[in-house]
């Protein structure tokens, strides 16, 4: 589903952040990418989602047999790529429901499916909120405005569940969450596991992996994946620390 080959990327100021990433994620798989601060985790997420301000200098990314890097960000999303933001953006004046319905209908139009009217949409929303155990109070507010850290992350998971992506990239969705919020997020991720969907969790800590069991774990260090393994790698990381891996080892 996702094939990253020898990916190099740098910031607008010329600093090279990704230095030859190789990663292959298949349909139905859950991967965890773990790394310390500054290892390039968020840059990888941003480059995959198509954010401005990064320049890919070498390598390729193939997503569902297409050149992902050639697509603008909004098209990537309509093609089923979802990024759960590390810092969900507050957008005053844009109602959360209006925003989500606009997004969902843009994606449905793209797939040639009929748009949902307000009533159909609301029914779908209610069902999904119940399933995820998220309160309805998020609905009437402006996008992320006045949300607590936990509410923002729940809103990301809720959006993921509504948009039903093919590939979900979770950028430190677990950071800053208390144990209850972490459970909601983990429960949401587990529910969204599906044979035709891939999930990539980017995280600093092993904590989330206590609740969501990954198929593969990768260690990102200095802009490269220095170690890959099964779920036991996460426990090893926790025990030995990042310093034991890669260049620093």
């Amino acid at each position: 589903m996702l094939e990253i080959t020898n990916l190099y990327a740098r910031l607008a100021d010329g600093r090279e952040i990704l230095k030859g990433i190789d990663l292959s994620v298949g349909a139905g798989e859950v991967h965890a990418i773990m790394g310390p601060n500054g290892s390039g985790k968020s840059t990888l997420a941003a480059v995959l989602a198509g954010r401005d301000g990064y320049e890919v200098t070498a390598g390729s990314v193939t997503y569902l047999d297409r050149d992902l890097l050639a697509m603008p960000a909004d098209e990537r999303a309509r093609e089923g790529l979802f990024l759960a933001f590390q810092y969900p953006v507050e957008i005053p004046g844009v109602n959360n429901m209006y925003f989500l319905r606009t997004a969902l209908n843009a994606q449905r139009r793209h797939r040639g499916e009929p748009e949902l009217d307000a009533g159909q949409f609301l029914r779908a929303v209610r069902a999904k909120l119940k399933e995820l155990d998220i309160g309805e109070d998020l609905l009437q507010r402006a996008v992320n405005v006045g949300f607590s850290g936990g509410e923002k992350k729940r809103n990301e998971i809720f959006q993921m569940a509504m948009l039903e992506p093919r590939l979900a990239i979770l950028d430190e969705t677990d950071s800053g969450l208390d144990i209850d919020a972490l459970r909601v997020v983990a429960n949401g991720v587990n529910r969204e596991r599906a044979p035709d969907r891939a999930i990539v969790m980017i995280t600093h800590y092993q904590r989330l992996l206590d609740y969501v069991e990954p198929d593969r774990v990768h260690v990102l260090q200095g802009g490269r994946i220095v170690e890959s393994g099964d779920k036991t790698l996460a426990a090893e990381l926790e025990r030995r620390g990042y310093a034991a891996f890669g260049d620093a080892a």
């Binding site: 401005d52 309509r78 979802f82 990024l83 969900p88 005053p92 004046g93 844009v94 997004a103 793209h110």
Partner: peptide, 21 residues
């Protein structure tokens, strides 16, 4: 970018933000 990352086309996303402003 947040709106784009949810699949809302750029022109529409800009209008949403102008309207919100």
């Amino acid at each position: 970018f947040y709106l784009l990352a949810r699949g809302i086309p750029r022109e529409h996303a800009r209008r949403m933000l102008i309207e919100a402003f």
